[in-house]
């Protein structure tokens, strides 16, 4: 429904908004869309299919997907406990969830490296079990799971809060066990929120830089993430190559987000 608003200021507000958006976001992003083609179509293709680039893209997207899938059960557990139970320390737990949002990425990177290094608090016991985390692809995934966790929790929490007890009561009255009620009533209702949480965690993780480069070890073909390759290309003044890789990352993430969107739509239809 469109109706004329009696309020003033639309012209001024829109003017400021488009100026701000255009200068800061749209013009620079246009450069990212246009610059790669200086290499020609074949040149762009060659530049994003170099073995080292393919390995880096594979690591960035693979580790991001893995990390988001690890965040799914962990985030669901934390959201469930924070919304449904009352226990001492619940407030602190709720506040701690936002730590990865608030902590600057370089600080997180340093801290995770110190923790998971072979002589770190967590790295030492893990090393004794034969698991190396820091300076391996596993370390990349751990850092990405850290930055992504709050997205899952914060997407699930409001849905869980709005989900009143009625449906679960009905399930119990009809003779469902608690586990059946949870699996057949609660989980499907949370499905769309879980998918968007995972999608957000994934989108954030794909491009993540600061919290990863310290723990990754950055060995080409093994633990080198795609954003780091962009930086390397810029340092060699290969602007077009850097832009081509940046554009490839955006196109790939967009494709993944479309898939997540389709999954969400299907889950939503299942609920309704």
């Amino acid at each position: 429904m469109r109706r004329r608003s009696a309020l003033p200021g639309l012209g001024l507000a829109l003017g400021i908004t488009w100026l701000w958006l255009g200068l800061i976001v749209l013009v620079p992003l246009a450069a990212l869309m246009l610059r790669p083609w200086e290499l020609g179509v074949a040149g762009v293709w060659a530049s994003v299919t170099e073995p080292r680039v393919v390995a880096a893209l594979g690591l960035s997207f693979g580790a991001a997907l893995g990390a988001a899938l690890v965040d799914l059960p962990l985030g669901l557990l934390i959201a469930w406990v924070v919304v449904r139970y009352r226990f001492p320390g619940r407030r602190v737990l709720d506040a701690a969830i936002d730590l990865p949002f608030a902590l600057p990425t370089a600080v997180a990177g340093l801290a995770l490296t110190a923790l998971y290094a072979p002589n770190g608090w967590l790295g030492a016991p893990l090393a004794e079990m034969g698991v190396k985390v820091a300076f391996t692809p596993l370390g990349v995934a751990v850092a990405l799971a850290f930055v992504g966790l709050p997205f899952v929790v914060r997407m699930v929490e409001p849905v869980l809060r709005d989900l009143g007890p009625e449906a679960e009561e009905a399930a119990a009255v009809l003779g469902a066990t608690r586990w059946q009620a949870w699996r057949l009533v609660v989980l499907p209702a949370l499905g769309p929120a879980l998918v968007s949480g995972v999608a957000l965690a994934f989108a954030r993780a794909v491009g993540e830089y600061g919290s990863v480069i310290f723990i990754a070890g950055n060995r080409p073909m093994e633990s080198e993430i795609a954003p780091l390759l962009i930086v390397a290309r810029l340092e060699q003044y290969d602007y077009a190559g850097a832009a081509a890789l940046g554009l490839a990352m955006l196109v790939l993430s967009f494709a993944f987000l479309v898939v997540f969107g389709l999954m969400q739509r299907r889950l939503r239809r299942g609920v309704a």
Partner: peptide, 9 residues
Amino acid sequence: VSPVISGLV
């Protein structure tokens, strides 16, 4: 958008 791309542009 990746932070690195935000600087790159």
